[in-house]
Amino acid sequence: MSEELKNTAIEELKTITSLPELAQLKARYLGKKGLITLQVKSLGTLSAEDRPPAGKRINELKDAIEAACSAREDELTRKDLAKRLASESIDITLPGRTAGIGREHPINTVLSEIIDIFVRMGFSVEEGPEVELDRYNFEALNIPKDHPARDMQDTFYVSDDVVLRTHTSPVQVRVMEQKKPPLRFIAPGKVYRCDADVSHTPMFHQVEGLMVDEGITFSNLKGVLETFVHQMFGPQVPVRFRPSFFPFTEPSAEVDIGCILCGGAGCRVCKGSGFLEVLGAGMVNPKVLGFCGIDTERYTGFAFGMGVERITMLKYRVDDIRLFFENDLRFLRQF
């Protein structure tokens, strides 16, 4: 009888397809008035000798049915979950929802790179005004009024004595007036020149550098700038110094690097020379040091300057400098 009951229950379990049905089945066998429960209750009618074996048998029967039910329950729960998960499936090929991550302006990316290289070499960072006195922008830098060297830069004038700085070099003077050697700093910032075409914009960025101490030499200038170039463009890039002229340095040099586009073979960008001009530099002219009250016998120093747009254009192969300031998202999002 009990073996039969167990088989019936197991057969019935197989036909069950949902958890509510399973609950009904459990109630029918194991509930308060369930078939198994009734058998347990009927134990009382048995004799003392018959009761233990019958009890044992019923318990085994009950355990067997409970185990079968619980196995079936697990199975049904798993199936239910699988069904729900299947119904909740989304198209994972659709694009994600995001405001996106913004893009840093390429000029600032490169500017930060330059600053970080010099900061690692122990340079501090200084600033000066963008609207500047003629005295600092020119006169203190050995560029008197009515001097042809003023032709090297097209100047925006605010008044006879005030200009939009044409280079970051006045920061050299402002800092040297305030602080005494040893000095080792860079001065990044915006500069202005009255010019606009494919390779000129009325505003652009420069990084100025200055180092003044006892025993600073032209050889040191070469060492520092070569280190910079190798960190910025890679250790394989050749660096070349050639004589040039800036009123505020003597001797003066232009610094060329091997063309990073053609590897020095010669291309349109380097005009076939294999070299690109990226920095101006030189030993600080004693007249400039003297203007700032620095003892030129005791101290020597070097200064350098570079255009950030130029380097950025080379790095990303941008062929029109004006794009940097149009701020068209289609351009900015590329960096």
Partner: peptide
């Protein structure tokens, strides 16, 4: 930048 803003540089 992390909030989705892109950086501009304008003339002064």
């Amino acid at each position: 930048l992390t909030s989705g803003y892109t950086e501009t540089i304008n003339y002064s």
